[in-house]
Design a protein around this nucleic acid. Structure first.
Ligand SMILES: [Zn+2]
Ligand SMILES: [Zn+2]
Ligand SMILES: [Zn+2]
Ligand SMILES: [Zn+2]
Lengths: 137, 137
DNA sequence: CCTTGACCCTGTAGTTGCTACAGGGTGCAT
DNA sequence: ATGCACCCTGTAGCAACTACAGGGTCAAGG
C-alpha cells in the first residue's frame, strides 16, 4: 500500500510516518518506479506498535528499546517490564503533581469575589507563592 | 541587582530571564555602563508572578493576559477568573486522561509473567489496542 | 601590574514529537 | 490535454526553555 493508505489504516498522519522513517523508527520501505513508498503488513504492524505506544505515553526512545526487544524474541522481556513500570511510575507521579495543582488552582479561584483587577485575590495569589497552601511545584 | 542575583532570589534560570525579556514578558531593564542588566523590585515581583504562574501550569500567552490585567487594576477581574477556570478544567481533563492511562498501563504490566520477549504479553499488548480494556487515548 | 575567576553580553542552535508548508513530480480519468 | 488526487524532498514552525560559543567586565590576590 502507499503512504496515504497506511496513514488511513493506522490513523497516523502521513507526515508523521515520514518523520518516523527519518528518525529510524520505521525501516525504509521499498520504492515504486515513481519513487513512491510501498508498504506491507510488517510496516503496518510496526507503525501500529509505535502509535499505540505513543498513545500510552511512551517516549520515542522508550519505543525504540521496546521495538528492539520485539525484534529479538529470544531475549529476556525484563527490559520491557522495566520500561513500562518506570513509565507507569512517571504517570503516577504526574497525576499526583496535577492533583496538587488542581487543588491549589481551585483554592485560588475560590478566593475571587469579582470586581476590580486591583483587588483581585486571584491575581494577588499568582504573584506570590506565600498565598498557596500546598507545595504544588 | 544584576541578573544573577535576580535569578537567585526568584529561582529562575538566567537564560530564562533573558528569554522572557526577548519575548516581551519582562520589560527591558536599565543597563549599566558595562551594558549589564540592572533590575529593581518591580522586575523581581513581575518575574515572581511569571514563574509562579508557570509553576501553576499557565501558558506564556495566558500569563501575558494575566500580567496585562495586573497592570490595569481598574479593569474588571473577570478575565483572570475565566483564564484560571479554563486552566483548571484542562488540568482536570488531563488528570482524567492520565488516570485512564495509568489503569491501562497497570493492566498491561500485570500480564507479564517474565520469560522471553517473544512470549511477552506486554509487548503483545503494545502492538495492538484490541488487548486494551479502556479507551486510553 | 597582571592574572585568575566569577560574572555578564549577544546570537544561535538544540530539545520533543510532531505538523505545515513550498515547490515540485506522478497517475488516472474525462 | 487537463484536471485532480496523490506522492516526493527539504525546510521551518510550535512551546518553553536550555546550552553553548565566543567574547567583554570587574574585583581580589600575588
Ligand atoms: Zn478576581
Ligand atoms: Zn504557589
Ligand atoms: Zn514480559
Ligand atoms: Zn490501547
Amino acid at each position: 500500500m502507499k503512504i496515504g493508505e497506511l496513514a488511513r489504516v493506522t490513523g497516523a498522519n502521513i507526515e508523521t510516518i515520514r518523520y518516523y522513517e527519518r528518525i529510524g523508527l520505521l525501516p525504509e520501505p521499498h520504492r515504486t518506479a515513481a519513487n513512491y513508498r510501498r508498504y506491507g503488513e510488517a510496516h503496518r504492524s510496526r507503525l501500529a506498535f509505535v502509535r499505540h505506544s505513543r498513545d500510552l505515553g511512551f517516549t520515542i526512545e522508550e519505543i525504540r528499546s521496546l521495538l528492539d526487544l520485539s525484534d529479538h524474541p529470544e531475549r529476556d522481556c525484563g527490559e520491557a517490564d522495566r520500561i513500562a513500570t518506570s513509565h507507569l511510575e512517571q504517570v503516577e507521579e504526574k497525576i499526583a503533581q496535577l492533583e496538587l495543582l488542581r487543588d491549589e488552582l481551585a483554592r485560588i479561584i475560590g478566593r475571587c469575589r469579582g470586581g476590580l483587577a486591583g483587588d483581585c485575590r486571584v491575581i494577588e495569589a499568582l504573584g506570590d507563592h506565600k498565598y498557596c497552601e500546598g507545595t504544588h511545584a
